[in-house]
């Protein structure tokens, strides 16, 4: 086969939420194909539908019209086949479970045996640099460590697809820089397909093979920017003219998509 393998196909998807003030169109005519192994950043102001799009891919919302295919399946089939790991805006670790047993939670649900669970939890802790913290409870860790644990949890069952919804939004910039770098190394090491929602321009530009710039009311794709940076980039690239150029293009895109209601 000469064609590239699409992990996700989004075809003319619209999604309308009924609210007490009448229907709100969260997504309007969104189409996008994502190739296996890509790191796609979604950026846009609040209300642009970036989170809704991610949730629709994860079968947490149902599109009003249009179709989504994940690994060639419907989102629901993909969810039931555990095709993706989802990282939320907050760690959402269960406080009555230790860090290790939080990471083991999806494995327990999927019926993975005890010995194998312990193995994978160990590997997961190592992957996110939390070795030795498995016996702690989530509330004994810092916010950054908690979010890392939640990434280990999402990766514990080794899904090919990682959906991340502003995972570092609540963290300070120093921690965020560090986690961005670690996430990039993780992506490089594991070859997973990552969809990453953010509202931070530097984060979007640093972490991507493509940036999808979205605009609000109704939520739609404004522009898609391709990447020229190597996979194993470091934080230093943020000082380069190319980086600033892409950041500038994103900023212009955000402004253009936004201009009519400023």
């Amino acid at each position: 086969m000469a064609t590239k393998l699409n992990t996700i196909e989004i075809d003319d998807v619209s999604l309308t939420f009924p609210t007490s003030d009448g229907p709100v169109q969260a997504l309007s005519g969104v189409s996008l194909d994502i190739v296996k192994g890509e790191f796609v950043s979604f950026i846009g102001p609040s209300g642009c539908g970036k989170t809704t799009l991610l949730r629709a891919i994860a079968d947490l919302e149902a599109p009003t019209s249009g179709a989504i295919r994940v690994n060639g399946m419907s989102p629901q089939e993909a969810r039931l086949k555990r095709a993706y790991g989802y990282v939320f805006q907050a760690p959402a670790l269960y406080p009555w479970r230790t860090v290790a047993s939080n990471i083991a939670l999806p494995l327990e649900i999927m019926g993975v045996g005890k010995a194998e669970r312990r193995n994978r939890v160990e590997r997961g802790l190592e992957l996110v640099n939390l070795k030795g913290f498995g016996a702690k409870f989530p509330w004994q860790l810092s916010g950054g460590m908690q979010q890392r644990a939640s990434i280990a949890r999402a990766l514990s069952f080794d899904p090919e697809l990682l959906l991340m919804d502003e995972p570092f939004g609540a963290l300070d910039e120093i921690v965020r820089d560090m986690l961005n770098q670690q996430l990039l190394q993780l992506w490089d090491k594991t070859g997973k397909t990552v969809l990453f929602v953010t509202h931070s321009i530097p984060e979007a530009v640093f972490l991507y093979t493509r940036i999808v710039v979205m605009s609000p009311r109704p939520g739609r794709i404004h522009e898609v920017i391709d990447c020229r940076f190597p996979r194993n980039r470091t934080l230093d690239i943020r000082e380069t003219p190319e980086f600033l150029d892409v950041a500038h293009r994103v900023r212009l895109g955000l402004r253009a998509g936004h201009s009519y209601d400023v």
Binding site: R79, A92, I109
Partner: peptide, 10 residues
């Protein structure tokens, strides 16, 4: 969020 998490695990 905690419920959605369980949903994502099927």
């Amino acid at each position: 969020m905690e419920r959605d998490l369980m949903r994502t695990y099927g």
